[in-house]
């Protein structure tokens, strides 16, 4: 009889200062019964991965509007590998062209959401991905 909850860290890397979008998502995730750790603006990949490890989250979501997604996402993935935390699901959203979206998902970003995607879609995605991850964990 465990009392497990889905834990998600939401962060805003890079220099743009808009956090309204990510706050809306944070509230939606909470309303879906998740524990959301919000870390705020201007987070470096290092800070994001350290926080994800300390908070032992199932997934990390980042929002990137600045156009720096092709450097920030890979930097976060690298940092996760370096710290042995690449089992944590990385997803994100922002203004990201389809080409880049494909490249990023090949690199290991579990899912890239484009603007206007309903929050239900993200919630559904996380639930499924976390479930799959937990089943894999059990086997080890």
């Amino acid at each position: 009889m465990t009392e497990q909850k889905i834990r998600v860290l939401l962060a805003k890397p890079g220099l743009d200062g808009h956090d309204r979008g990510i706050k809306v998502i944070a509230a939606a995730f909470r309303d879906a019964g998740m524990e959301v750790i919000y870390t705020g603006l201007r987070q470096t990949p290092d800070m994001i991965v350290n926080a994800a490890i300390q908070e032992d989250v199932d997934a990390v979501g980042v929002s990137i509007l600045s156009g720096a997604h092709m450097t920030l996402f890979p930097a976060i993935l690298d940092m996760m590998k370096e710290k042995g935390a690449d089992d944590i699901i990385l997803f994100g959203g922002g203004i990201i062209p389809d080409d880049d979206k494909e490249k990023l998902e090949k690199l290991g970003v579990a899912k890239v959401f484009t603007p206007g995607a309903p929050t239900e879609e993200a919630i559904e995605f996380i639930r499924k991905a976390v479930k799959a991850k937990n089943e894999k964990d059990k086997l080890v």
Binding site: A26, A27, R30, E35, V36, I37, Y38, G40, E55
Partner: peptide, 8 residues
């Protein structure tokens, strides 16, 4: 659910 924002 919960919104944990103290890290900010």
């Amino acid at each position: 659910g919960a919104l944990l924002g103290d890290r900010v």
